[in-house]
Structure formats: C-alpha cells, structure tokens
Amino acid sequence: MQPAVQEKFNSYPEHIRIILMEVRALMLAIIHDNHLGDVEETLKWEEPSYFVKGGSTVRLDWKPKYPEQYFVFFNCKTKLVDTFKELYSDTLEFRGNRAIVLHVNDPFPQSALRHCLELSLKYKAIRHLPLLGV
C-alpha cells in the first residue's frame, strides 16, 4: 500500500478503518480470484482508489458529515450504478448514479457488494452487454 493511501486509512476513525479495510480486502480478493492483473492503488479526490486494466475505477470513503455511512464510488459516466439498482435495490442504498451507500451499523453486504465490485473491475469487457451480462 502506498504511504499516502495508508495515511488516508489511518486518518479514519478506527471502526471505519476496519470496515473500509474489509472492502479493500474484498476488492483485492476479487482481483486475485479473477486474475485481473495488477491493481493501481492510489488516492483520487483524496479517497482510496482502485483500478485494474480493463476495469472501471472504484473509490472508497467515509465523511465526517455522514458519520454513520461509508461509500463505494463508481464512475458516474458508466451504467454500473444503474445496473446495481436493477439487481440490488432491495439490498443496497444508492446515491445518484455514482455511489453505494453503506451503513456502519448494518450487516456487511458481502455477496451483493462483491458482485458489484466484480462488475466494476471487469467493466470494459462487459459494458456492451445488457445488464452487464448478468
């Protein structure tokens, strides 16, 4: 992990850092399990950001303005979040066409989040398919 990214994770309250590190670990596992290649982990807009060749960037963050929520951001110029809404509107909460909103005190939605992250990390290969091939 780059020092700037580590610094950002260290700046979060401990309970948030633990949750966001869980999201990060899930993303890295998806990349590994699907042989998606090298991951670029950096800060974009001061948020931990993840990109693999052939995918769409995923960012994570928590904001003091919304202390009980954390966010997984996607490129708003893609059809990713619209597809996620079709698949998981009963399970996940969304902000516009750019983010999944998760709540600190809710159970971690591992299965749904894993699927959304996987679609984003494979986006360029599936973007032409209806519902991203789901």
Rank of each mutant, 00 (worst) to 15 (best):
residue 130 P to R: 11
residue 24 R to C: 05
residue 127 R to N: 14
residue 57 T to W: 04
residue 90 D to V: 00
residue 81 V to K: 07
residue 10 N to A: 15
residue 51 F to N: 12
residue 26 L to N: 08
residue 96 G to W: 07
residue 103 H to G: 01
residue 70 Y to M: 07
residue 120 S to D: 04
residue 126 I to A: 01
residue 60 L to T: 13
residue 4 A to Q: 14
residue 79 K to D: 14
residue 43 L to P: 03
residue 73 F to W: 08
residue 45 W to F: 14
residue 39 V to G: 03
residue 31 I to D: 10
residue 82 D to R: 09
residue 48 P to K: 05
residue 94 F to R: 07
residue 63 K to N: 13
residue 115 H to N: 08
residue 111 S to R: 10
residue 12 Y to C: 06
residue 104 V to F: 01
residue 44 K to P: 02
residue 23 V to P: 00
residue 101 V to S: 05
residue 120 S to P: 01
residue 86 E to Q: 11
residue 126 I to Y: 02
residue 50 Y to S: 08
residue 93 E to M: 09
residue 122 K to F: 01
residue 45 W to L: 10
residue 115 H to T: 12
residue 18 I to Q: 13
residue 44 K to A: 12
residue 9 F to C: 10
residue 93 E to L: 08
residue 110 Q to G: 10
residue 73 F to K: 06
residue 46 E to N: 15
residue 50 Y to C: 10
residue 123 Y to N: 09
residue 91 T to D: 14
residue 81 V to Q: 07
residue 105 N to R: 08
residue 89 S to L: 09
residue 129 L to P: 02
residue 7 E to S: 14
residue 16 I to M: 14
residue 81 V to E: 06
residue 43 L to D: 06
residue 19 I to L: 15
residue 90 D to G: 01
residue 108 F to N: 10
residue 64 P to N: 13
residue 38 D to P: 00
residue 52 V to A: 02
residue 23 V to D: 10
residue 103 H to W: 08
residue 5 V to T: 13
residue 86 E to D: 12
residue 6 Q to H: 11
residue 101 V to K: 10
residue 129 L to G: 03
residue 112 A to E: 12
residue 37 G to V: 11
residue 105 N to I: 00
residue 27 M to F: 06
residue 57 T to V: 14
residue 44 K to S: 14
residue 78 T to M: 09
residue 77 K to C: 04
residue 84 F to L: 06
residue 114 R to A: 08
residue 130 P to L: 11
residue 113 L to F: 02
residue 15 H to W: 02
residue 48 P to I: 06
residue 111 S to V: 14
residue 2 Q to W: 05
residue 97 N to L: 02
residue 121 L to Y: 05
residue 109 P to Y: 05
residue 109 P to C: 04
residue 87 L to Q: 11
residue 24 R to D: 10
residue 81 V to A: 05
residue 68 E to H: 12
residue 41 E to I: 13
residue 7 E to C: 03
residue 42 T to K: 11
residue 120 S to K: 01
residue 105 N to H: 12
residue 28 L to P: 00
residue 39 V to I: 14
residue 26 L to W: 02
residue 43 L to G: 06
residue 128 H to P: 01
residue 62 W to A: 07
residue 3 P to E: 15
residue 106 D to T: 07
residue 20 L to M: 07
residue 14 E to R: 06
residue 91 T to Y: 04
residue 46 E to F: 04
residue 21 M to S: 10
residue 16 I to E: 09
residue 37 G to M: 10
residue 4 A to R: 13
residue 29 A to W: 00
residue 58 V to E: 09
